[in-house]
Nucleic acid binder design. Structure first.
Lengths: 350, 350
DNA sequence: GTTAGCACTCTCTCTTGTTGAGTGCTAACA
DNA sequence: TGTTAGCACTCAACAAGAGAGAGTGCTAAC
C-alpha cells in the first residue's frame, strides 16, 4: 500500500498533535480538521497502523505514532526553521565574553541546550588521544607556594598549588618551567605513562623532593584531563514530561544518566559530523530505547573533538531541537580557541 | 509535668524509630520493647503529647515527634559517634591529591557530603568582600594567544585566553604583568568598580587595544569571582525520602534549591563557627521550615570563608550527619591553601 | 500505678459500577 | 468504489462503598 496524500496529511497531523499533547489521537479529532467523517479517518488510521506507522495503546484507545513514523517525520515531513530571534540572541549572549576554557564552555553548552529545549542535555569532552600538552609553567605566588599551570591544545588549563621546600627565585622557576616543557610539550595526554614520569624524575637529580612533587602534580593533572568528563544539565526536566513523570521512572532515568560510560556510548558510537538523530530503538544503548537522542559533534582545529546531545521523549520537538543544537554547536566551535601545534615559532595559521 | 526517666526512654525510642521508618509509632511497638502494656504506654504518650513532644497525624494514628522533640533529641538525647572507619577513610581518600582550587574543593565537598549522608548537600563560596586579588600574570602560549591568570588569596585561579593583536616577546609580557599587578594586587575583589578599571585603562596609553581587552578580561574574571557560587549535590536523594517522594513536592524542592539567594540565606544567616543545626521552624527561610538543615563554616587563614550544609527531613540521622559534616569541613579547611598577604617578601607565616 | 476490654476513628485497599472516549464492522448511500 | 451513519463493543478512569487493620481514649478492675 502507498502513502497517498491524505494518509500523509493525517499522519503528519497525528504526529504534530501527539508531540504537543502526549495523548493518543482519536479519529474525531482528525475528522474535525479535514471535513470528513470519523469513520473515514478510522479506515485510514487502520491502514496506517497496518503499514506500521501507528500503534494503539489498547484496543479502544486512539492512535500513537510508532518509531517508524517518527523516522519518517524526521526524514520527510518536518520542516526545520531557524531558531526564534529571541533564542538566537540569548545563545549569542551566553557565549559572549565567556572564558575560553573547554570545560566551562561545555558546562555552559549543556546548560543552554537544556534551558532552551526543556529536555535533558549532555556534553562530553574530547577523547583523550586527541589532547596534546601545549605548555607547562611555574608561577611564583608567595613565600610558600608556586602555581603549576598545564595548558593543552584545546584550551584546557589545569592548575595546582605546590608547596616550595626551599626559597627559589623567579629565574630559577623559569629554568624549571623550560625543562618541564622540554619533556612534556607536544605529548598527547593519553600517551604519558608512568614510565615517562619516572624518566623525567630521573632527569632531575638535584632538588629531588621538589621535582618529585612537581612531576606528581603534573601526573595528577594529566590524569584528570585523562578522564573524560560528562556534563549533564536539565535532568529534572524529565519530571515535566508526562510519560516519565512518575517517581520510579524518574529515578531510573537519573541513575541511568549517572553512568558515564553509557553516556559516552550514547553520543559517541558513530559520529559523522553534523546533527544525528536516534529515535527509540535506533539508539546504540539498550537503556535509551524509549528515548530519542539528538547529538552533534564539535570541533577544534577542524578535528572532531567531542559531542553534545539532547535527550528527550520520542515525541520530542525535533525541528526546534535540531536547529537549537546546530546553532549552539556552531557557537561553541567558534569560541573554542584553536591553539597552535606548539612546534614553536610564530607560524601563521587560521 | 517533668520528663521522668521512663518518658525520656519512650521519647528516645519513638524518635529513633521514626528516624528509621518514617512511620508513626504506635503504643504496641513501644510496649513490646519495655515489658509494659500498650495502655500504659498510651498514657505516657498522651502526656508527652500534652508536653509538646509528640503529635498525631490523625486521631487514630500513632505518634510522630514534634520539632521540639527533635531539638530536645539533638541537645540532650543523641550521642554523636565518630564516623565509621570506612567512611572516614573514604573522605580522606577523596581529598588526597586533589587540586587546591577552592571551587573544585567545594564541588567535591558537596558531593562527598551528599554521597555519604544520602541527603542533599550544598557548599557556598566565600563572601566577596573577603576575597583579595593575589597575583595577575600573562603567559605566552602561541603565535596568537596569551593566557591571563588571576590568583586570589583563597586559591581561586581564573584563566582566560587573550588574542594578541601583535607580536610580543616574553619580557614584554612580564613587564605588562608587573604593571597589572601593581594595579590589582591586594585589592579586595568586591571593591574593584568600573572606575578602577577605567583608571587602569587610562594608565596604558600605548597599545590601547590590547590593554583594553586585557583589562576587560580581568574585569570579567573578577566579575565571575564576584558572583558567589552555590554547589549543590544529591538533589535526587530527595526522591528516596518517603515524605518527599512525590512528583509535586520533588519539583517544588528542585526549584527551591535553584534559588541561589535563598541558599545563601539558608546557610549564612548567622554563622557561629562550628556545626549548626536548624530544625524545621528554626530555619531562617520560610521555604525550608519542613526540613532540617545542618551547616558548618570553613576557614581560610583562620577567617570564616563560607559554609556547607546538609538538607534533609526533620527526622534526619543527626548523629551521623553531624560527625560527617564535622569531619569533612575539617578536611576541607586543611586542604584550602592559605596564601600569604601579598605584601611581598618572604615573610614567615603559617 | 498498671492493665484488660471495649467502642470508636481513620487510613488503606479492594471491589464494583458508571461514564466517556474510542474502536471495528456492517450496511446503506452517492 | 469511496464515504458515512449506526451500533455493539472495549477499555481506562473515576467514584462510591465495604472491610480490614492499626491505632486511639476511656473506664473499670486489679
Amino acid at each position: 500500500m502507498l502513502l497517498g496524500d491524505r494518509k500523509l496529511a493525517i499522519l503528519r497531523t497525528i504526529i504534530d498533535d501527539y508531540i504537543v499533547t502526549a495523548e493518543p489521537i482519536g479519529s474525531r479529532t482528525i475528522a474535525k480538521k479535514y471535513e470528513l467523517s470519523s469513520a473515514t479517518i478510522r479506515n485510514e488510521m487502520a491502514d496506517l497502523e497496518e503499514m506500521g506507522y501507528l500503534r494503539q495503546v489498547h484496543t479502544s484507545s486512539g492512535r500513537v505514532p510508532s518509531d517508524k513514523a517518527y523516522r519518517f517525520y524526521v526524514d520527510k515531513l518536518m520542516q526545520v526553521n531557524a531558531l526564534s530571534g529571541n533564542e538566537a540572541a540569548y545563545i549569542k549572549d551566553v557565549y559572549e565574553k565567556k572564558s575560553t576554557q573547554l570545560e566551562e564552555l561545555l558546562m555552559l553548552t549543556a546548560k543552554t541546550l537544556s534551558d532552551i529545549s526543556n529536555y535533558t542535555a549532555i556534553a562530553v569532552g574530547p577523547k583523550i588521544d586527541t589532547v596534546v600538552v601545549r605548555s607547562v609553567r611555574l608561577i611564583p605566588i608567595d613565600a610558600n607556594y608556586v602555581l603549576l599551570i598545564v595548558v593543552t591544545d584545546s584550551g584546557i588549563v589545569r592548575d595546582m598549588m605546590i608547596r616550595k621546600p626551599f626559597d627559589m627565585d623567579e629565574s630559577y622557576l623559569d629554568k624549571v618551567s623550560e625543562k618541564l616543557n622540554f619533556y612534556f610539550r607536544g605529548r598527547p595526554v593519553g600517551g604519558i605513562g608512568d614510565d615517562v614520569f619516572d624518566q623525567v624524575k630521573d632527569g632531575f637529580l638535584r632538588d629531588k623532593v621538589f621535582f618529585n612533587s612537581l612531576v606528581d602534580a603534573i601526573s595528577e593533572t594529566v590524569e584528570s584531563s585523562n578522564t573524560r568528563k560528562v556534563y549533564t544539565e536539565g535532568l529534572n526536566n524529565i519530571l515535566d514530561i508526562p510519560e516519565y513523570s512518575d517517581i520510579i521512572k524518574a529515578k531510573e532515568f537519573f541513575s541511568l544518566m549517572k553512568k558515564k560510560q553509557l553516556m559516552f556510548d550514547l553520543v559517541d558510537s558513530d559520529m559523522p559530523q553534523g546533527v544525528n538523530i536516534h529515535i527509540g530503538d535506533e539508539n546504540p544503548i539498550e537503556e535509551m530505547k524509549s528515548f530519542s537522542v539528538v547529538t552533534a559533534t564539535y570541533c577544534v582545529n577542524k578535528k572532531i573533538y567531542g559531542s553534545v546531545g539532547i535527550i528527550g521523549p520520542k515525541r520530542m520537538n525535533y525541528p526546534k531541537v535540531i536547529s537549537l543544537i546546530d546553532n549552539v554547536v556552531d557557537e561553541l566551535t567558534q569560541h573554542l580557541v584553536a591553539l597552535g601545534d606548539g612546534s614553536g615559532g610564530y607560524d601563521e595559521e587560521e
